[in-house]
Amino acid sequence: MESVGRQDLQEDAAASFAPLRPKLIRVAYRMLGSVADAEDVVQEAFIRWMTADRSEVREPEAFLRRTVTRLCLDQLKSARKKRETYIGPWLPDPVVEEEEEEDVTLPLMLALERLSPLERAAFLLHDVFGLEFEEVAASIGRGPPACRQLAARARAHVREARSRFKVDKKRGLEIAQAFFAASRSGDMTTLSAMLSADVSLHSDGGGKRPAALRLLFGLDDVMKVQRSLVRFFEKGGWELVRITMVNGLPGFITREADGELQTTALDIEDGKVTAIYVMRNPDKLRHLH
């Protein structure tokens, strides 16, 4: 009888947790920039939920969000050390979102990387997820006035990364389609006309696949790379998986000649591509298969 009662409690815990899992994954991913790490953190939160005295918890969502946030803060300490030895530019794991509105785009996630863990948590919980500062304070273990200061500092740092000229989704995907067609067919004249003068190229191979080992800035340097890639594309062996939104930006997923997936996301302002983000690290693409 005792084992039956325990099983009922576990089933109850799983039933109450399941609807909250997607929200918790969103919080954890935006804190960590890693799909696998976010899933691990949320699984750890579930284990803690299973063993908690749930009769004492008035708001399960708030309790679990606090648990996930604190686990993420612990994780960020070790993540920063790993980033110091990362080979080449680091990009967050690509997430393909079909929703019309994406609250945290890829440029904003990169800007969040420059914040302290507490600033990052305060900004995300208050400015992105809309929590009152009292709840933010309970989540990160600081008083409300301190949380206001953390969020304000974060806001000042990331202001430039928040899109001021949000491209229409339909138009953005049309530009992504045109970019894909021009880059793969070798139409460098069309491709060059699509790029802004100060365009940047961010390519993350993580030392696992060929990629630029530094950020590239300016039309000349980016076009030099695009021209060098044409001879590889001419050999074939690659295929377009789909045109889609990647981390809130128009882009596309391809399967390259080596059989591995690749994502490309485009930041667009006034109809011109201002940044190109290419993910080639197979460890960060595994969840897309």
Score class of each variant (00 low, 15 high):
122 A>G: 11
75 Q>M: 09
9 L>K: 09
140 I>E: 00
134 E>W: 12
97 E>P: 01
68 V>G: 05
33 G>D: 11
225 V>D: 13
203 S>I: 04
223 M>C: 08
238 W>E: 05
281 N>D: 15
275 A>D: 03
273 V>P: 00
216 L>V: 08
108 L>P: 00
47 I>C: 05
124 L>N: 00
121 A>P: 00
206 G>E: 12
248 G>E: 01
125 L>A: 09
28 A>H: 00
182 A>M: 08
41 V>W: 00
159 R>I: 03
193 A>R: 13
278 V>Q: 02
242 R>H: 11
75 Q>H: 14
47 I>S: 12
70 R>L: 13
59 E>H: 15
135 E>Q: 12
48 R>H: 12
47 I>E: 14
232 F>Q: 11
133 F>W: 06
54 R>V: 08
153 R>M: 11
32 L>H: 00
249 L>V: 10
249 L>P: 00
195 L>R: 00
273 V>Y: 01
118 L>Q: 08
243 I>R: 02
89 P>H: 06
94 P>F: 07
59 E>D: 15
143 G>S: 15
267 D>S: 15
190 T>M: 10
100 E>L: 15
124 L>H: 01
191 L>M: 10
105 T>F: 03
236 G>C: 08
90 W>Q: 05
135 E>P: 02
131 L>V: 04
151 A>P: 00
265 A>G: 14
172 G>A: 08
218 G>H: 09
84 E>L: 13
53 D>I: 05
42 V>Q: 02
60 P>W: 08
203 S>E: 15
98 E>P: 04
108 L>Q: 03
31 M>E: 06
122 A>Q: 02
95 V>Y: 01
84 E>S: 15
107 P>W: 02
81 K>C: 04
251 G>F: 03
230 V>I: 07
173 L>N: 03
229 L>Y: 08
255 R>F: 08
169 K>L: 12
117 P>S: 08
260 E>A: 13
191 L>W: 01
195 L>T: 01
238 W>R: 02
136 V>Y: 03
164 R>M: 10
269 E>F: 08
78 S>M: 06
84 E>C: 06
58 R>K: 13
266 L>K: 02
254 T>C: 13
181 A>W: 04
37 D>M: 13
262 Q>W: 04
55 S>M: 07
248 G>Q: 01
22 P>S: 09
206 G>K: 06
145 P>E: 15
177 Q>L: 14
141 G>H: 10
174 E>T: 07
179 F>D: 01
148 R>T: 07
175 I>K: 02
142 R>Q: 12
198 D>P: 11
222 V>K: 03
241 V>D: 01
16 S>P: 02
268 I>M: 06
179 F>S: 01
254 T>V: 14
5 G>D: 12
1 M>S: 14
230 V>C: 06
138 A>G: 13
276 I>L: 10
128 V>R: 03
88 G>I: 06
235 K>T: 11
142 R>K: 13
102 E>Q: 09
223 M>H: 05
258 D>S: 14
113 E>K: 06
17 F>C: 09
204 D>E: 14
194 M>R: 03
119 E>S: 10
